[in-house]
Amino acid sequence: METIFQSVFSGVLMGCIYALIALGLSLIFGVMNVVNFAHGDFVMLSMYFTFWAGSLWGIDAVLTPLVTFPLLFLFGVIIYYGLISRTLREHYTIQIAITVGLMTFLRAITQLVWQARPRALTYSFIQGNIQVGGYVIALSRLVSAIISLIIIGSISYFLNRTWPGREIRATSDDLDAASLMGINYQKTYAIAFGLGSSLTAIAGGLLMTFQQVDPTMGLRFGLLSWCILALAGLGSLPGLLISGLIVGVSESLAMTFWDPRARLLVIYLIFVLVLWVRPRGIFGRK
């Protein structure tokens, strides 16, 4: 019983970060219908930036998003104008081809700069454990989950309550109508892509407080966030959060009770099953 609770709880904590990553992808795919295969590699890149900032300048991993967030935003905007905007009118396979090219590029670059071996930071001031009613919880995971929730909440506020956020939503609802009303969709798309990318900066920073990074982990994060998106459907933030939790908990349970190697298996099985049973997601608005 205790192990179940422990496992579920750590899955829940992980799920919050997953939901944050998937939120970035959801912004990109939901708003402009662009398939970004490199999203997971953005997470990987953010983790490396965090590692760099931590090992070179001694900045704590929790604080690096202050630097990496604007950096990744800029990176996203550049990628949008340089690559994505040129392929908007092409067949969707061309978009995938270009983001796969980007994925290969990022992976190769990180391998070149940081080598293939896994890297980790040894210290963060949110390390250590706390005791809650007899259960041991890693502080770093708890803090990371809470920060993720706060960020998801503020993004939700941004999309629903602020003007640029509403522009993004309007553009995702109807591109033609939005451009008729004078919304510059190129700019909106660039902001959405930048924002989607910069969310991975936060996730990357948080993950580095308790995980190591290597150049091949991008695909895993990519597929994972697509899985959450498939579960959630488009346009529902609470759905996204719940889906993140489902994925996190199932992964954690699989690791505890079946086999550590089965964690991916469970995620992919959920993904395939969801597509078969509910092609539009469980919480989708359409």
Binding site: I94, L102, T104, A108, T110, Q111, Q115
Partner: peptide, 22 residues
């Protein structure tokens, strides 16, 4: 000599080809 460099060049070629000959 430099692991990963060939992949950098390869991916740049790939991106350029896709951009200019979709």
């Amino acid at each position: 000599d430099v692991s990963g460099l060939y992949l950098v060049i390869y991916s740049v070629i790939l991106i350029v080809v896709v951009l200019f000959r979709p």
